[in-house]
Amino acid sequence: MSPFLLAMNCLGLLLFVVVFIAIRSEHLRVEHSVMWLGGAILFMIFALPTRILATFTRVLGIGAPETALMFVLIGAIVLVCFHYGTIISKLRDDNTALAQRLAILELELRKGRRNPV
C-alpha cells in the first residue's frame, strides 16, 4: 500500500470516529450523520489495497489510483453538500412557517386582549 493510500485510509477512519463521537455527544443527529458515515466507509473501502480501486481506476480511464481516490473523495463531498443543502432548505421553510404562525398568533392574542369575550 502506498503511503498516500495509507494516509487516506487513516483519514477515512478518523472521519468515521469523529462522526461517531459527534453522534454520541449529540452534536450531530443520527439521521444527518448517515451521509458522513457512508462516505467514510466508502472512502476506507476504496483506500484499502483491494482490486476495487484498481478496477475503478481502469474503468474510468484515470492514470493513477491516487487520482481516482481523490475523485471519490470529491464526489462524496459534493453529495454530502447537496444533502445538507436540502436539509437547510427544509429548515428555512419550516422556520418561515413558524415565524408566520407566531406573528399571526401574536396578532390574534393582542386582538383578544383588546376585545375579551
Binding site: 415565524a99 408566520q100 407566531l102 406573528a103 399571526i104 401574536e106 396578532l107
Partner: peptide, 25 residues
C-alpha cells in the same frame, strides 16, 4: 393599524404570505 410582527427578517414573500394566510382565515 393591526401589525403582524415577525421575529426576524422574513423577506417580502414570507411576510406577504403570512398576511394572505391571516386574511384567508
Amino acid at each position: 393599524a393591526s401589525v403582524l410582527s415577525f421575529a426576524y427578517h422574513l423577506g417580502l414573500g414570507g411576510c406577504v404570505q403570512a398576511a394572505y394566510q391571516y386574511a384567508f382565515s
